[in-house]
Amino acid sequence: MYGKDRIYKKVEVIGVSPDGVEAAIQAAVNRAHKTLDRLSWFEVQDIRGHVQEDGRITEYQVVLKVAFELKD
């Protein structure tokens, strides 16, 4: 499956969701998958969110590095 001469490029994306960290990650990966060929893996760099005045969390923001394999 994996060749010996794989080269990857990483780019930063930020996923946003009101439904939690995992949903924010999935949103970022879904969008990256639509725009980048040969998407391979991701790394979570940072997690943050928005808190309302009443203390409720209304938005999760996850900064990811996603990697895709460069074409020959």
Rank of each mutant, 00 (worst) to 15 (best):
A67S: 13
E69H: 09
M1R: 08
Q52N: 15
K9V: 13
R6V: 14
R31L: 09
Y8C: 10
G3L: 05
A67H: 04
A23L: 00
R48W: 07
D46N: 06
F68I: 06
D37A: 12
A32H: 00
A32R: 00
V29C: 10
S17T: 00
D5M: 05
V62S: 06
D5I: 01
D37V: 03
G55R: 03
E59D: 15
M1Y: 04
T35H: 09
A27R: 01
V51P: 08
I14Y: 01
K9N: 13
L39H: 12
M1S: 14
A24W: 00
D54N: 14
V66T: 03
Y8G: 11
V62N: 08
N30I: 01
E53S: 05
V51E: 15
M1F: 06
L39S: 10
I47H: 04
A23G: 01
V21K: 00
Q26T: 11
I14D: 02
F42N: 07
A27E: 06
E53V: 05
G20S: 11
K71W: 08
D19Q: 07
K71V: 08
A32S: 08
K10P: 06
Q45Y: 01
A27D: 01
R6G: 09
F68Y: 15
Q52F: 11
R31I: 07
A32Y: 01
E12D: 04
I14C: 06
K65I: 10
Y2M: 07
L36F: 15
K4G: 09
R48A: 14
Q45G: 03
G55L: 03
Q52E: 15
Y2F: 09
H33M: 08
V29D: 11
I25R: 02
A24D: 02
F68K: 04
L36H: 11
Q52K: 14
S17P: 00
F42D: 05
L70C: 07
K65V: 10
E12F: 02
G20Y: 03
G49H: 02
H50D: 13
G15C: 04
R56Q: 04
W41R: 11
S40F: 07
I47C: 09
L70Y: 03
I7S: 12
K10L: 11
E12S: 07
R48V: 02
V11L: 15
R6M: 14
D46V: 00
A28S: 02
M1L: 10
R48Y: 09
A23H: 00
G55K: 02
I14L: 05
L70R: 05
R38Y: 15
F42A: 08
E43D: 14
V21D: 00
I57A: 10
D19A: 08
R48Q: 13
D46R: 01
R6C: 12
N30R: 07
G3Y: 08
D54L: 06
A24L: 03
N30Y: 07
D37M: 10
E53Q: 11
Q45C: 04
V51I: 15
E59I: 06
V62F: 09
R6E: 14
R38D: 14
A23S: 06
W41I: 03
V16D: 01
A23K: 00
K65N: 12
I7V: 15
D5W: 04
V16A: 02
D5Y: 08
E69Y: 06
A24G: 05
